[in-house]
Design a protein around this nucleic acid. Structure first.
Length: 255
DNA sequence: ATGGCTTCATAGTGAAGA
């Protein structure tokens, strides 16, 4: 089983890239973030023509998440229980017996800002809910844009980024608290090239210079981590015309 | 140099992203 995540930065703009990528990579599950589309506009027909089903939770302009899958997702859940939120940042569904959680963590803007406090509160609520969800669903995958680079090796220039949003101690602590639930960063289960990133700024020719961050992750509960045979970042779509600033991340599970 | 692009809301410019 192949599962993947991709922050597409507008599904309206990126739909051709998504359809091409699905055809070329044949994932069983693809989680999308920043669809920036109301549900009435979601391109369900185009995806069904490509052999996929989808569940989605979107809004105009900002945020928006979707789970695209070959087998229709079941037990669909929208948003974080106990965390009332206008922002569409989380959707969960069960696919082939695996609880798939697709999330777009808040950016946080700058350390100490209102948005930063919202980010930390959101991550706290996520962890609290996951603690229960993991009891209900021992086979769980948490895919998405974490907006946290877990370690300095996930940052192209750790000195320049030190202490700033996406790498601050409190954000990294929130990430490690997710790991303490038993979730494993599938990318780090395997030897990887140095300077592997999943996001590059549109400006400054950052992609060509590989000035990036690894903030798009696939975390796996223990039973899934045991069966994980690989995790890679696919840089190819970042090279296309009008790319998303994020690249897809793919994990393969045996069985 | 707190910028640089890109998207979306808009109809000239501003917010937000990371």
């Amino acid at each position: 089983m192949r599962i993947a995540t991709w922050n597409v930065n507008s599904l309206k703009v990126r739909l051709p890239h998504v359809l091409d990528w699905l055809a070329a990579n044949q994932p069983d599950v693809l989680c999308l973030q920043e669809t920036k589309q109301e549900d009435s506009q979601f391109p369900l027909a185009a995806l069904q023509q490509a052999g996929y089903q989808a569940v989605f939770s979107g809004q105009k302009t900002y945020n928006g998440v979707a789970i695209i899958s070959k087998v229709a997702g079941a037990e669909v859940m929208y948003g974080l229980p106990g965390f009332p939120d206008e922002q569409k940042r989380l959707i969960a569904a069960t696919v082939n017996g695996i609880r798939v959680v697709c999330m777009y963590a808040p950016n946080g803007q700058s350390v100490g800002s209102d948005k930063y406090r919202y980010k930390l509160a959101w991550l706290d609520a996520l962890r609290e809910w996951l603690k229960e969800e993991l009891v209900r669903h021992p086979q769980l995958a948490l895919l998405g844009d974490y907006n946290i680079a877990p370690e300095d090796r996930d940052v192209h220039d750790p000195q320049a980024w030190a202490g700033s949003v996406l790498v601050s101690e409190q954000e990294r602590a929130a990430f490690h608290a997710l790991e303490r639930l038993g979730l494993r960063d599938s990318f780090r289960l395997f030897a990887q090239p140095e300077q592997s990133y999943s996001w590059w700024d549109y400006r400054m020719m950052a992609f060509r210079r590989n000035m990036g961050l690894r903030i798009d992750l696939i975390l796996l509960s223990a039973p899934l981590a045991q069966n994980c045979t690989g995790c890679t970042i696919d840089r190819a779509p970042r090279k296309l015309e009008r790319p998303s600033d994020h690249a897809p991340v793919v994990a393969d599970l045996a069985g």
